[in-house]
Design a protein around this nucleic acid. Structure first.
Lengths: 228, 228
DNA sequence: TTCATGGTTCGACGCTAATCGAACCATTGC
DNA sequence: GCAATGGTTCGATTAGCGTCGAACCATGAA
């Protein structure tokens, strides 16, 4: 048998509670040390090490060694996407009982997804930029229009400033809480960096929540030309 | 611990080879009997029954009993989406070695995804309909424009003909082979039905491949106003 | 009714893998 | 060089689960 892509192998890797907790902890795109991940998952260092070795073998995470610290991060944006999709499923399933998620409305408002903005404000940004023609889809590929770069420039995101990598400039990422798209890719990541720099928002330590200041959210909406 | 959405539970469900094979067999949206799924996964009836009970408990599949036959189908479009996302990850991982998939270029050309068209022709359709303004995105929600309904009417898809359900009229679904979007939702499903009715294409039994006839593909491209 | 077919339940076997204690390796600081 | 800290490797224990044979239940046809 052994059908083409062995989906079960990677699903099994995510299927362990300890591993999934670690993966979810990395879903914000940060690189965490093995020890931090161990405590995050509530297991000992030895166990975590064995799990991380497996995840590394499956390329679900990448390792970066700095001195005596071993930093782990997600293996790629596609891994983050799969995790979000699984979150969407479990959300719908437990949602029939829990309804609308037990806690963390803040998580629905704005959160980090790998390295870009997700949640209501993420979807709002995507929608407005799409309507205003900043983002355009040419033969299926999402991109930034000529006029769009000017608009992005207002906030400090320029075409030259983007790292020259294989990563797509723009990409849409499905939002599990909103069931809509938000902006990923290099532009999505750069936008979030600028928002942090301008102190419109900051991360809430230990969570994926992005806390906007009142004036920061107002500034974002102004830039987006969004009502309210 | 037991973090919010227990993503690991459903990932573990997909993580077993037998179960993932059954799920992939259902990814085309068909409802299959327990026996068919058993042979598909290469296991005995008893084992399959136990697996299906688990999947049912996790709401990854839905059961429909007709006489002495028990039909199983995927639990929802979100499940299909998660499976496709996992396919995307395993594709990228094994792809570094296997490169571009060992077999089935036909699967990349055109295949069924839950109940709509995916693959190159699926992406092409999405792109063309988007460019021609048949599909429009209004405040993030994909829909059909006024003029778009006329265009869809040419092929037999009318606004009245759609089932009145909670399922979105239009929805974009990520394509694992193309890394682009193709059209899902009620319109996506209806379009494929029309294509089958017009004998432009037919399913290849036992696989997810959709085989277009030469004249059928030409007719599709003509309707799409696509070159070649 | 009786038989055949499709599915599920029960029980037992075997294997994998998760877990932690202890020892071992590497880096940093004194 | 020596301790301290962060990580990994090794080994042993344990529990869970996938698997199948056999029995049981339901439906449909003769």
């Amino acid at each position: 048998m052994k059908d083409g892509p062995d989906i079960s192998r990677i699903a099994a890797l995510i299927g362990d509670p300890a591993r999934s907790n670690m993966l979810l902890a990395m879903l914000d795109g940060r690189a965490l040390t093995a020890g931090e991940l161990a405590s995050q998952a509530g297991i000992t260092k030895q166990t975590a090490s064995s799990h991380l070795a497996r995840l590394l073998d499956g390329a679900l995470v990448a390792r970066e060694v700095q001195g005596r610290h071993h930093y782990y991060r997600l293996g790629g944006a596609d891994v983050a996407q799969a995790l979000e999709a699984l979150l969407g499923v479990s959300e719908g399933r437990t949602g029939t009982r829990t309804r609308t998620g037990p806690r963390d409305p803040a998580l629905r408002k704005a959160r980090i997804c790998y390295d870009h903005l997700a949640g209501e404000l993420g979807v709002l940004s995507y929608d407005r930029l799409m309507e205003d023609g900043v983002l355009v889809r040419r033969s299926g590929v999402l991109g930034v229009s000529k006029a769009g770069w000017a608009r992005l420039g207002e906030i400090g995101v320029t075409e030259d400033g983007l790292a020259r990598s294989r990563r797509p400039v723009c990409k849409d990422c499905l939002d599990w809480s909103m069931r809509r798209h938000h902006l990923a890719g290099q532009v999505g990541a750069a936008l979030l960096v600028r928002m942090f720099e301008r102190k419109w928002a900051k991360r809430v330590a230990g969570t994926r929540v992005i806390q906007f200041t009142p004036s920061g959210e107002a500034a974002l909406r102004t830039w987006l030309r969004a009502p309210t």
